[in-house]
Nucleic acid binder design. Structure first.
Length: 130
RNA sequence: UGAGUAUCCUAGACAAUCGCUCCCGGCCAAGUACGGCGCAGGGGGAGGAACUUCCGGACUCCACAGGGCAGUGCGCCGUUCGAAAGGACGGAAGGACGGGGCCAUAUCCCCGUUCGAUGGAAAGUGCAACAGAAAGCAAACCGCCCGCAAGGGUAAGGGUGAAAGGGUGCGGUAAGAGCGCACCGCAUGUACGGCAACGUACAUGGCACGGUAAACCCCGCAUGGAGCAAGGCCAAGCCGGUCCACAGGAGCCCGCCUUCGUGACCAAGUAGGCCGCUUAGAGAAAUGAUUGUUACAACGCAAGUUGACAGAAUCCGGGGUAUUGGAUACUUUAUAA
RNA sequence: UCCGGGAUGGUGUAAUGGUAACACGAAUGUCUCUGGAACAUUAAUUCUAGGUUCGAAUCCUAGUCCCGGAA
């Protein structure tokens, strides 16, 4: 059963969660994206995700569109990640995220940096590299 | 053909797959409740400006004997829509521009277009740089006149300024002056027209009354303050309280004692949750992604590429601003015939 | 969402409705063997557009942008 959805339990909600991830997590940057990663207190729970968009990025239409694109990109790549991790993503410019493909590529590079991929996927990548 | 103004319409369509959110009644499902990357089905899911936060209201809380002052806002007239703000139509005075007229000039008259927050300067106070003699109960620098001079008279002329204490002409005079007269302007009164703002005519006066109130102010009218992050309800933990319980630990003067602990209960209320909240109605905040067919427009030889401004957060009414395509009416520039 | 405040040289600040001022910085020149210092000069659509006024950075109206507060 493919789990392609993005339900309520896979998103970060409270201000406590945001403070915990941003202050206690690792910070990574690539391709106009900033990502904070932090392990969840309960390690077997789902991967949780959130997007933060500042007003400097543009008017409400631009902000909503970047949020939706990033959320769609995360929805597609969610099953390939390890469990029990909280992620916050903040785009720095809307011009680099005009399509879903661009957003997904940026997310994948950041996953690789953070070492979040599932072991099976990692093995495949290592095999190809060798 | 280009540009602009006003009013009205529009804001591509259909299908498939994946996904989000809310609602409905079912199933997992059991006595109740919690709960779900739950299951399948049905239905709803951004705008004309949702933008701005410039006005007004609903709603909520706070304050409040009665009256007044202060503060703040508004300000031509009539009709009309509206809860109000505001809008629509018509009119009046005024400003600007253009054209014309009086022999000519004026702060004069007429016509057209257009603008507009348009009560009061005859209650009081203030302000007016520089220049200029003088900037407001007038005043004499040059000039003119009288005079030997001292001094006096004089606002016609010069020059300054945004503005110089009615304009033109004639008379008058030592020179001049509303000093007198005619016309115009102004003021007062009367009559007439008009619902009114106001206009017209006549008489009188003889210039008194310069500008500025989007300066203070005066007059008239209106007006409590804050805002859904308003406000209300439930409520862990910590702290606090109890004439409750234990016969749990410690103390001694051995008690209906003190103290500690545990539990129970209570008040207030933090985290948090719920209501407020909606036939879109969320709560780090949904309305999205991909693909196909197709309509219109622009660009391009073609294949093809591109698709305005912009995203609800308590709701409603208006103003303003941004903007795609079109329709109607009007104005206007240039070119051609 | 609801409120409040602001915009003046490159930067930070002044300025009763009447010549846009000061400091630092920048550029150019003088001085010096060279540099520094010093001296002189230059650079402003007072956020934008209308209006009131003889005259607007200032007053009024509308817009643009920025900053702050309220759980």
């Amino acid at each position: 059963m493919l789990q392609n959805g993005l339900p309520r339990t896979c998103r970060l909600h409270t201000q406590k969660d945001f403070e915990r991830v941003i202050k206690g997590g690792r910070k990574l940057q690539a391709k106009g994206l900033v990502m904070w990663v932090c392990s969840n207190p309960s390690p077997l729970s789902n991967v949780r995700f959130a997007v933060v968009v500042s007003r400097k990025l543009g008017p409400a239409v631009v902000r909503n569109r970047t949020k939706r694109l990033l959320r769609e990109a995360f929805r597609r790549s969610r099953t390939e990640l390890k469990q029990g991790v909280d992620i916050i993503v903040r785009p720095q410019s809307s011009e680099k995220l005009l399509h879903v493909q661009a957003a997904q590529e940026a997310l994948m590079t950041l996953y690789g940096k953070a070492g979040l991929m599932c072991p099976s996927v990692v093995h495949k990548e290592e095999g190809t590299e060798e």
